[in-house]
Protein backbone atom coordinates (compact mmCIF):
# COMPACT_ATOMS: atom_id res chain seq x y z
CA UNK A 1 0.00 0.00 0.00
CA UNK A 2 1.33 3.39 -0.93
CA UNK A 3 1.06 5.80 2.00
CA UNK A 4 -0.13 9.27 0.98
CA UNK A 5 1.30 12.15 3.02
CA UNK A 6 0.17 15.73 2.54
CA UNK A 7 2.46 18.60 3.51
CA UNK A 8 0.17 21.51 4.24
CA UNK A 9 -0.08 24.73 6.26
CA UNK A 10 -2.78 27.12 5.09
CA UNK A 11 -0.39 30.06 5.11
CA UNK A 12 2.17 30.58 2.38
CA UNK A 13 5.91 30.94 2.83
CA UNK A 14 6.19 28.79 5.94
CA UNK A 15 8.28 26.06 4.34
CA UNK A 16 5.89 23.56 2.75
CA UNK A 17 7.89 23.03 -0.43
CA UNK A 18 11.21 22.97 1.44
CA UNK A 19 9.71 20.37 3.75
CA UNK A 20 8.17 18.31 0.91
CA UNK A 21 11.53 18.24 -0.85
CA UNK A 22 13.43 17.19 2.26
CA UNK A 23 10.87 14.66 3.53
CA UNK A 24 10.58 12.95 0.15
CA UNK A 25 14.36 12.90 -0.23
CA UNK A 26 14.78 11.59 3.32
CA UNK A 27 12.33 8.73 2.74
CA UNK A 28 13.98 7.86 -0.58
CA UNK A 29 17.41 7.84 1.09
CA UNK A 30 16.02 5.33 3.57
CA UNK A 31 15.25 3.05 0.63
CA UNK A 32 11.55 3.74 0.11
CA UNK A 33 10.28 4.29 -3.40
CA UNK A 34 8.87 7.78 -3.12
CA UNK A 35 7.00 10.21 -5.38
CA UNK A 36 6.52 13.88 -4.61
CA UNK A 37 3.68 15.73 -6.33
CA UNK A 38 3.39 19.50 -6.67
CA UNK A 39 -0.28 20.47 -6.26
CA UNK A 40 0.33 24.19 -6.75
CA UNK A 41 -1.19 24.35 -10.21
CA UNK A 42 -0.29 27.62 -11.91
CA UNK A 43 2.58 28.42 -9.56
CA UNK A 44 4.87 25.43 -9.64
CA UNK A 45 8.02 25.66 -7.57
CA UNK A 46 8.85 22.20 -6.32
CA UNK A 47 10.79 21.57 -9.55
CA UNK A 48 13.09 24.50 -8.73
CA UNK A 49 13.62 23.39 -5.13
CA UNK A 50 14.39 19.86 -6.34
CA UNK A 51 16.63 21.18 -9.11
CA UNK A 52 14.80 19.49 -11.99
CA UNK A 53 13.14 22.53 -13.59
CA UNK A 54 14.87 22.02 -16.92
CA UNK A 55 13.71 18.45 -17.23
CA UNK A 56 9.98 19.12 -16.95
CA UNK A 57 8.14 17.92 -20.05
CA UNK A 58 4.74 16.79 -18.79
CA UNK A 59 2.95 17.66 -15.58
CA UNK A 60 0.22 16.52 -13.19
CA UNK A 61 -2.58 18.05 -15.29
CA UNK A 62 -1.31 16.34 -18.45
CA UNK A 63 -1.56 13.02 -16.61
CA UNK A 64 -4.99 13.84 -15.16
CA UNK A 65 -6.23 14.71 -18.66
CA UNK A 66 -4.66 11.64 -20.22
CA UNK A 67 -2.33 13.70 -22.43
CA UNK A 68 0.66 11.87 -21.00
CA UNK A 69 1.15 8.79 -18.88
CA UNK A 70 2.82 8.73 -15.50
CA UNK A 71 6.00 7.11 -16.84
CA UNK A 72 6.44 10.07 -19.17
CA UNK A 73 5.63 12.71 -16.57
CA UNK A 74 7.58 11.46 -13.55
CA UNK A 75 11.05 12.97 -13.33
CA UNK A 76 13.75 10.89 -11.72
CA UNK A 77 15.59 12.81 -9.02
CA UNK A 78 19.24 13.51 -9.76
CA UNK A 79 20.44 12.68 -6.24
CA UNK A 80 18.36 9.69 -5.19
CA UNK A 81 17.66 6.42 -6.89
CA UNK A 82 14.15 5.92 -5.49
CA UNK A 83 12.75 9.42 -5.82
CA UNK A 84 10.45 10.77 -8.54
CA UNK A 85 8.94 14.21 -8.99
CA UNK A 86 5.59 15.00 -10.58
CA UNK A 87 5.53 18.73 -11.28
CA UNK A 88 2.47 21.00 -11.32
CA UNK A 89 1.25 22.64 -14.49
CA UNK A 90 2.47 26.17 -15.00
CA UNK A 91 -0.09 27.20 -17.60
CA UNK A 92 -3.38 25.71 -16.43
CA UNK A 93 -5.51 26.91 -13.61
CA UNK A 94 -6.40 24.98 -10.50
CA UNK A 95 -9.86 24.03 -11.74
CA UNK A 96 -8.15 21.51 -14.00
CA UNK A 97 -7.56 19.36 -10.90
CA UNK A 98 -10.42 16.95 -10.35
CA UNK A 99 -10.94 14.55 -7.51
CA UNK A 100 -11.31 11.63 -9.94
CA UNK A 101 -8.15 12.71 -11.74
CA UNK A 102 -6.08 12.90 -8.57
CA UNK A 103 -7.45 9.58 -7.36
CA UNK A 104 -6.50 7.97 -10.67
CA UNK A 105 -2.93 9.28 -10.45
CA UNK A 106 -2.55 8.07 -6.85
CA UNK A 107 -3.92 4.61 -7.70
CA UNK A 108 -1.51 4.33 -10.61
CA UNK A 109 1.43 5.31 -8.40
CA UNK A 110 0.40 2.55 -6.05
CA UNK A 111 0.37 0.06 -8.93
CA UNK A 112 3.86 1.20 -9.83
CA UNK A 113 5.03 0.06 -6.41
CA UNK A 114 5.55 3.39 -4.67
CA UNK A 115 5.83 3.20 -0.89
CA UNK A 116 5.19 6.87 -0.21
CA UNK A 117 3.51 9.68 -2.12
CA UNK A 118 4.17 13.17 -0.77
CA UNK A 119 1.62 15.80 -1.78
CA UNK A 120 3.05 19.32 -1.65
CA UNK A 121 0.00 21.49 -1.00
CA UNK A 122 -0.37 25.05 -2.26
CA UNK A 123 -1.11 27.80 0.28
CA UNK A 124 -4.70 28.74 0.95
CA UNK A 125 -7.77 26.62 1.51
CA UNK A 126 -9.03 26.47 -2.04
CA UNK A 127 -9.26 23.69 -4.58
CA UNK A 128 -5.54 22.88 -4.91
CA UNK A 129 -5.06 22.67 -1.15
CA UNK A 130 -8.20 20.57 -0.69
CA UNK A 131 -7.19 18.22 -3.53
CA UNK A 132 -3.75 17.77 -1.97
CA UNK A 133 -5.24 16.63 1.35
CA UNK A 134 -8.29 14.71 0.10
CA UNK A 135 -6.58 11.33 -0.19
CA UNK A 136 -4.07 11.75 2.62
CA UNK A 137 -3.32 9.00 5.11
CA UNK A 138 -1.03 11.27 7.09
CA UNK A 139 -0.56 15.03 7.22
CA UNK A 140 2.47 17.08 8.10
CA UNK A 141 1.18 20.48 9.13
CA UNK A 142 3.96 23.05 8.79
CA UNK A 143 3.72 26.03 11.09
CA UNK A 144 5.95 28.97 11.96
CA UNK A 145 5.92 30.21 15.57
CA UNK A 146 3.94 33.23 14.52
CA UNK A 147 0.27 34.19 15.00
CA UNK A 148 -1.07 34.10 11.45
CA UNK A 149 0.66 30.85 10.62
CA UNK A 150 -0.66 29.10 13.74
CA UNK A 151 -4.18 30.29 13.12
CA UNK A 152 -4.09 29.16 9.48
CA UNK A 153 -2.69 25.78 10.54
CA UNK A 154 -5.67 25.37 12.81
CA UNK A 155 -7.97 26.14 9.89
CA UNK A 156 -6.30 23.56 7.68
CA UNK A 157 -6.57 20.99 10.50
CA UNK A 158 -10.30 21.64 10.55
CA UNK A 159 -10.45 21.02 6.80
CA UNK A 160 -8.43 17.81 7.16
CA UNK A 161 -10.88 16.61 9.76
CA UNK A 162 -13.91 17.36 7.60
CA UNK A 163 -13.00 17.12 3.92
CA UNK A 164 -10.44 14.34 3.66
CA UNK A 165 -11.70 11.02 2.30
CA UNK A 166 -10.88 9.36 5.59
CA UNK A 167 -13.10 11.86 7.41
CA UNK A 168 -15.90 11.72 4.82
CA UNK A 169 -16.02 7.93 4.87
CA UNK A 170 -15.76 7.76 8.65
CA UNK A 171 -12.55 5.75 8.51
CA UNK A 172 -9.63 6.07 10.89
CA UNK A 173 -8.76 9.79 10.78
CA UNK A 174 -5.75 11.24 8.96
CA UNK A 175 -2.68 10.91 11.19
CA UNK A 176 -1.56 14.45 11.93
CA UNK A 177 1.97 15.63 12.65
CA UNK A 178 3.05 19.15 13.57
CA UNK A 179 6.31 20.47 12.16
CA UNK A 180 7.45 23.82 13.52
CA UNK A 181 9.81 25.55 11.09
CA UNK A 182 11.91 28.73 11.08
CA UNK A 183 12.45 28.34 14.80
CA UNK A 184 14.76 30.81 16.52
CA UNK A 185 15.63 29.51 20.02
CA UNK A 186 17.22 32.81 21.08
CA UNK A 187 14.09 34.76 20.28
CA UNK A 188 12.02 32.19 22.14
CA UNK A 189 14.29 32.53 25.15
CA UNK A 190 13.97 36.31 24.97
CA UNK A 191 10.19 35.99 25.00
CA UNK A 192 9.84 37.36 21.48
CA UNK A 193 8.69 34.19 19.79
CA UNK A 194 6.16 31.47 20.57
CA UNK A 195 7.88 28.32 21.74
CA UNK A 196 7.28 25.01 19.99
CA UNK A 197 5.46 23.93 23.13
CA UNK A 198 3.11 26.91 22.82
CA UNK A 199 2.38 26.06 19.19
CA UNK A 200 1.77 22.44 20.03
CA UNK A 201 -0.46 23.32 22.94
CA UNK A 202 -2.52 25.62 20.74
CA UNK A 203 -2.90 23.21 17.83
CA UNK A 204 -3.05 19.98 19.87
CA UNK A 205 -1.23 17.88 17.29
CA UNK A 206 1.73 15.58 18.06
CA UNK A 207 5.04 17.25 17.26
CA UNK A 208 7.23 15.55 14.67
CA UNK A 209 10.05 18.05 14.75
CA UNK A 210 11.40 21.56 14.95
CA UNK A 211 13.43 23.00 12.08
CA UNK A 212 15.66 25.91 13.10
CA UNK A 213 15.64 29.17 11.17
CA UNK A 214 18.74 29.08 9.02
CA UNK A 215 20.49 30.74 6.11
CA UNK A 216 21.14 27.25 4.78
CA UNK A 217 17.60 26.94 3.44
CA UNK A 218 18.22 29.75 0.98
CA UNK A 219 21.59 28.26 0.06
CA UNK A 220 19.85 24.98 -0.68
CA UNK A 221 17.08 26.49 -2.79
CA UNK A 222 19.60 28.62 -4.70
CA UNK A 223 21.26 25.44 -5.86
CA UNK A 224 18.16 23.33 -6.32
CA UNK A 225 19.28 20.84 -3.69
CA UNK A 226 16.82 19.74 -0.99
CA UNK A 227 18.02 21.09 2.37
CA UNK A 228 18.33 17.59 3.85
CA UNK A 229 21.38 16.99 1.60
CA UNK A 230 23.40 19.88 3.04
CA UNK A 231 26.58 18.92 4.86
CA UNK A 232 27.10 20.09 8.46
CA UNK A 233 23.80 21.87 8.55
CA UNK A 234 21.41 21.96 11.49
CA UNK A 235 18.50 22.09 9.08
CA UNK A 236 19.61 18.89 7.34
CA UNK A 237 20.08 17.13 10.69
CA UNK A 238 16.70 18.35 11.92
CA UNK A 239 15.00 16.97 8.78
CA UNK A 240 16.80 13.64 9.20
CA UNK A 241 15.43 13.51 12.73
CA UNK A 242 11.94 14.18 11.35
CA UNK A 243 12.30 11.21 8.98
CA UNK A 244 13.47 9.01 11.85
CA UNK A 245 10.49 10.01 14.00
CA UNK A 246 8.16 9.51 11.06
CA UNK A 247 9.48 5.97 10.82
CA UNK A 248 8.81 5.61 14.53
CA UNK A 249 12.40 5.74 15.72
CA UNK A 250 13.08 7.63 18.94
CA UNK A 251 14.95 10.89 18.50
CA UNK A 252 15.30 13.64 21.11
CA UNK A 253 14.54 17.19 19.94
CA UNK A 254 17.58 19.19 18.90
CA UNK A 255 18.21 22.86 18.11
CA UNK A 256 15.42 24.04 20.41
CA UNK A 257 17.59 25.53 23.13
CA UNK A 258 19.69 28.61 22.75
CA UNK A 259 23.37 28.12 23.40
CA UNK A 260 25.32 31.25 24.12
CA UNK A 261 28.13 31.54 21.61
CA UNK A 262 31.49 30.85 23.22
CA UNK A 263 34.24 33.47 23.39
CA UNK A 264 36.06 32.10 20.35
CA UNK A 265 32.93 32.03 18.30
CA UNK A 266 32.16 35.61 19.28
CA UNK A 267 35.64 36.79 18.34
CA UNK A 268 35.98 34.92 15.08
CA UNK A 269 32.34 35.06 14.18
CA UNK A 270 30.52 32.01 13.19
CA UNK A 271 27.05 31.18 12.25
Amino acid sequence: MARVIVVTSGKGGVGKTTTSASISTGLALRGYKTAVIDFDVGLRNLDLIMGCERRVVYDLINVVNGEANLHQALIKDKHCENLFILPASQTRDKDALTEEGVEKVLKELEHMGFDYVICDSPAGIERGAVMALTFADEAIVVSNPEVSSVRDSDRILGILQSKSRRAMEGREPVKEHLLVTRYAPKRVEDGEMLSYKDVQELLRVPLIGVIPESDDVLQASNQGTPAIHLKDSDVATAYQDVIARFLEEERPLRFVNYEKPGLLKRIFGGK
Binding site: E146, V147, V150, R151, D154, R155, G158, Q161, S162, V188, D190, G191, E192, M193, L194, S195, D198, L202, L203
Partner: peptide, 25 residues
Amino acid sequence: SKQKTASVAKERLSLIIAHERGTNR
Protein backbone atom coordinates in the same frame (compact mmCIF):
# COMPACT_ATOMS: atom_id res chain seq x y z
CA SER B 1 12.93 46.00 29.68
CA LYS B 2 11.95 44.53 26.33
CA GLN B 3 8.31 43.53 26.26
CA LYS B 4 7.62 39.83 26.20
CA THR B 5 5.34 39.67 23.21
CA ALA B 6 5.28 35.89 22.83
CA SER B 7 2.92 35.52 25.78
CA VAL B 8 0.62 38.12 24.24
CA ALA B 9 0.64 36.13 21.01
CA LYS B 10 -0.21 32.92 22.81
CA GLU B 11 -3.08 34.45 24.68
CA ARG B 12 -4.56 36.06 21.55
CA LEU B 13 -4.21 32.82 19.62
CA SER B 14 -5.79 30.63 22.25
CA LEU B 15 -8.85 32.88 22.28
CA ILE B 16 -9.27 33.17 18.53
CA ILE B 17 -8.60 29.49 17.87
CA ALA B 18 -11.13 28.40 20.48
CA HIS B 19 -13.66 30.76 18.94
CA GLU B 20 -13.02 29.66 15.36
CA ARG B 21 -13.06 25.99 16.26
CA GLY B 22 -16.52 26.51 17.63
CA THR B 23 -17.86 28.18 14.51
CA ASN B 24 -15.95 26.48 11.72
CA ARG B 25 -16.16 22.94 12.91
